[in-house]
Computed example of a mutant assay.
Amino acid sequence: MASIGSERQHVRLFFAERATGWETRYPDDTPAYAAAVEALEVPPGGRALDAGCGSARALPLLRAAVGPAGTVVGVDLTPEMLGEAVALGRRADGALIEADSAQLPLRDGTFDAVLAAGLVHHLPDPAAGLRELARVTRPGGRLALFHPLGRAALAARRGHDLRADDIRAEARLGPALSATGWRLALLDDSAERYLAVAVRRPH
């Protein structure tokens, strides 16, 4: 557990140092976020969760999808990122909660749709995280694992090689989702984006 705790702290510090002005560094990402939200097929009046929401760029998009009668919640581990979300006025679009996406303070089966942008590969135990996201999603609800760059493009930007043990790789992701309550419905790992959509299996 100490190892998981230290990994979690490392992620928190990484994003804390970069929180201020986060979206100004990636100003062109919103259309890709909009396409990911569209793929979630959030029902009007539904309930949507942005897990690992960061500066909550997706909250206005999720709010537009669910409408005024729906519920939108953003959860993030890093208080500095949530502070940036508040500064950007994102509280107008949904609730913001400081919490670990692998230990959500939310009831079982609450959400129709979950967006997890740039989250799953930062989790110390991705399988546990996927299981927790399944716990709070109703049967038939949808999960979008998303990044506005594909894995190869992102690795190249950071000067890394693609890793065979990456949870987002198709060979690993399908079995991991299946083992944690999901069924993989779509996977797009192109240069333009990474988007995996999964459906919550019946309990």
Rank of each mutant, 00 (worst) to 15 (best):
A2Q: 09
A171Y: 08
R201Q: 12
A117M: 08
A32L: 15
A113P: 09
G67H: 00
E38P: 01
L145T: 08
A19E: 09
R138Q: 13
T24F: 02
D189K: 08
R131A: 14
L13V: 08
G181E: 06
E7C: 13
T110R: 10
A164L: 12
L162A: 07
R25Q: 15
V120Q: 02
V199D: 06
A58G: 05
R201M: 11
D108G: 01
D189W: 11
P126E: 06
A128D: 12
F15P: 00
V75W: 05
H160D: 07
R138V: 15
R90A: 00
L143F: 10
V114F: 12
R63A: 04
I167Y: 02
E23K: 00
E17C: 12
A35P: 08
A171R: 13
G181K: 02
L145P: 06
D188T: 15
G89K: 03
T71M: 10
G45H: 03
R107M: 09
L49K: 04
L106N: 01
P60C: 07
L184E: 13
R193K: 08
P202Q: 12
S55E: 13
Y26N: 05
V75S: 00
L187G: 00
D188I: 15
A127H: 08
R90V: 02
L184C: 14
A19V: 10
G67E: 03
L104I: 09
R200M: 09
A51Y: 05
P44Q: 10
R12Q: 11
R151L: 15
L187K: 01
E7V: 15
A196K: 05
L59F: 03
